[in-house]
Design a protein around this nucleic acid. Structure first.
Lengths: 109, 109
DNA sequence: TCGTATTTCTACGACAAAGGCGAATATTAT
DNA sequence: ATAATATTCGCCTTTGTCGTAGAAATACGA
C-alpha cells in the first residue's frame, strides 16, 4: 500500500513548495523548465497535478480573475500533509543512497 | 532527444555507484530495500537494468561461478559515462528545485 | 453595448515509456 | 537428481507525453 512517486510527480511537488501560493499550472511548468531544466508540456503537468490531487497529495483552490488581458481563472495548488510526507520519503531514499559517495557522485558543471 | 530517468532508474544508478564492482541484480534490490526503504521485486530491478543497458547508461559483464552452494553466474553492472552524465542531470534538477527551501523541505525523521 | 477577436489557462484523449509481480527458466554446487 | 541462487519472461498497471480542444476572461470596433 506504500506508493512511490514518479520522477515528474517529485519535481512538481518540489516546484509547489518553491512557488508557494503562486503555484498554478503554467508557473509550475516554467519553474521546471527554468530551474530544473526539465522541458515538458503543459498537458503533462496538468495531468500529473490531477493525479496528485486524486491521491490526496495536493489540494487545489480556484483563484479570482486577474485584471490582465485574457485568461481563464487559475487553479492554485498546495501540498497536503500526506504529500509532504511522501515527498520527504522520496527525497530521503535518494539522500540515503547518495550519502557518503563523495566525488563518485556526478555533478553537472 | 533528451531523455529523462524514471525514479527507479535513478535509484538503481545510485545503488550501482554505491556497490561498485559488487553490483548485481540481487545485491541492488537489497540495497534499495535496506538503504532506501524502496521495496521492489527482483523482476522490476532486472527489467530496469535491461532498459538502462539498452539506453547505454550501464554496461554488464558476466562474473565467474562462485564456490557457494548453488547459483547461476552473476551479471555485474557499472555506469557508463553517459549514465553518469544523465544521473548527474537528474540529481541536479532535484537539487536546484530544493535549493534554498530551508525547513520547508520535508524530512523523514 | 453587443459581439467577436484574442489571450490565458485548463481538460481531454490516444498513445509511449516505465514500473510491478509472479512464475518460469537457467546455471551452478552437493 | 536435488537444492540453491540468479536471471528472464509475460502480462498488466501506472506514469509520462503531446497535440488539440475547450473554457473563461479581457479588449475593442461597429
Amino acid at each position: 500500500m506504500t506508493a512511490y512517486l514518479g520522477d515528474l510527480e517529485q519535481l512538481i511537488l518540489l516546484a509547489l513548495l518553491r512557488l508557494g501560493p503562486a503555484a498554478y499550472g503554467v508557473a509550475i511548468a516554467e519553474q521546471l523548465a527554468d530551474r530544473a531544466g526539465r522541458e515538458t508540456s503543459l498537458g503533462a503537468v496538468y495531468k500529473t497535478l490531477t493525479r496528485l490531487e486524486q491521491k490526496g497529495y495536493v489540494r487545489a483552490t480556484m483563484g479570482d480573475p486577474t485584471p490582465e488581458r485574457g485568461g481563464r481563472r487559475k487553479r492554485y495548488y498546495q501540498l497536503t500533509p500526506a504529500g509532504r510526507k511522501t515527498l520527504g520519503a522520496s527525497l530521503d531514499a535518494i539522500r540515503r543512497l547518495s550519502a557518503g559517495l563523495g566525488r563518485l557522485i556526478p555533478e553537472e558543471s
